[in-house]
């Protein structure tokens, strides 16, 4: 089976973002989606520290410490961009104005629960940032993650073991093996990678799946 690499995973998400969408890309793997947005679509990226119309990383030597994204990396503005304060920025999320949010995850449950902020380890310093706001803060929340942990354990699970970021908030999970739609009547798997069939996928993720 040919697992997708990180860029191919990001490209699959990017393909499903429609023209005109307002989108927030979470820190980590989801930021790669910006590099794969299809030509010809006008998509406005939101970063929760206070910018709509975020552009790519500036050329070396043109970084501005006061123009950064939520991952505190230098970015640029595109024509039509706007700046705003944090209460307005999170009103855009909480108020349901963003169309799509793409997040990374430790685990997602088949019911759409998301765990991506805290390992729950006793020595871990808890830090949530905007994760809980993003989890409930878009019309649709997509997760982009590897299907299995490095140890081969599925990350799409019946019930999350890690502390939750939000309940019943994820509608679709993009992975390096397949895309999973989390529906009220069960999980539908589609876009299986070359060399993987639905029975083998069922065994790998240990879930009852329907082929989409």
């Amino acid at each position: 089976m040919n697992k997708l690499d990180r860029d191919a995973m990001a490209a699959r998400v990017a393909r499903d973002i429609p023209d005109g969408a307002y989108v927030n890309l979470g820190i980590g793997l989801p930021t790669l989606v910006a590099d794969h947005l299809p030509e010809g679509r006008e998509i406005v990226l939101h970063t929760e520290n206070g910018l709509l119309g975020m552009g790519p990383r500036p050329a070396a030597g043109h970084e501005d410490p006061e123009l950064i994204n939520a991952g505190k990396r230098p970015v640029t503005t595109l024509p039509g961009a706007s700046f705003f304060h944090h209460a307005d920025s999170f009103a855009m999320m909480r108020g349901g104005h963003l169309d799509i949010c793409v997040l990374g995850a430790f685990e997602v449950s088949v019911g759409g629960d998301l765990a991506n902020w805290h390992t729950g380890k006793p020595d871990a310093i808890p830090a949530v940032g905007g994760a809980m706001d993003l989890a409930i803060g878009a019309k649709r929340v997509f997760v982009l993650m590897e299907a299995l942990t490095k140890e081969g354990r599925p990350k799409l699970v019946r019930e999350c073991a890690y502390p939750l970021t939000g309940r019943a908030c994820v509608s679709r999970v993009y992975t390096d093996l397949a895309t999973f739609d989390l529906r009220p009547d069960g999980v539908v798997a589609r876009d299986l990678v070359e060399g993987l069939d639905i029975d083998a996928l069922r065994r790998l993720v240990d879930l009852d799946l329907r082929a989409g």
């Binding site: 929760e48 944090h86 920025s89 999170f90 808890p126 949530v128 940032g129 809980m132 706001d133």
Partner: peptide
């Protein structure tokens, strides 16, 4: 001491 607050709740 630490109180962790989700960013949007902190702002609000």
């Amino acid at each position: 001491e630490l109180e962790v607050v989700p960013q949007g709740n902190l702002a609000e």
